[in-house]
């Protein structure tokens, strides 16, 4: 059920990125898509009453594996957040430059490339 909500969020983002005419809304749509995937990844590692996956020498291994959450999705999400930050800042920079050139955020008015 909760995974289905993630996919719904993903589809909302996809709709925003593909069907909207305003650059800012397109950027928001892409960000929503990305965070839907991040949410999905983090939910993969979810465990009710789980504990943080930090091990020491005194840790009881069977008890640890029974309760600890999966650390890999967390690492993946952190990486994909960093990548998302890079893409987002590049997109915003290009959007600002485009606004300087055209004086608008509407993509239907930017039509120098055709064919």
């Amino acid at each position: 059920m909760i995974y289905a909500m993630c996919f719904l969020l993903f589809l909302i983002g996809l709709y925003g990125a593909t069907c909207k005419k305003n650059i800012v809304k397109i950027i928001l749509g892409l960000v929503i898509m990305e965070y839907a995937v991040n949410l999905f990844l983090i939910l993969l590692g979810w465990r009710t009453n789980g504990q943080a996956p930090i091990m020491s020498q005194q840790t009881d291994l069977p008890a640890f594996t029974a309760t600890a959450v999966d650390p890999i999705p967390q690492a993946l999400v952190l990486t994909s957040i960093v990548i998302g930050l890079g893409i987002l800042s590049l997109m915003v920079a290009i959007a600002i430059r485009l606004y300087e050139r055209y004086g608008t955020f509407d993509i239907t008015e930017m039509r120098r490339l055709k064919g």
Binding site: S89, A93, R97, E100
Partner: peptide, 11 residues
């Protein structure tokens, strides 16, 4: 840098 470039500097 990102913040400065986005907020303050223009081409």
């Amino acid at each position: 840098m990102i913040f400065i470039i986005l907020a303050v500097i223009r081409v």
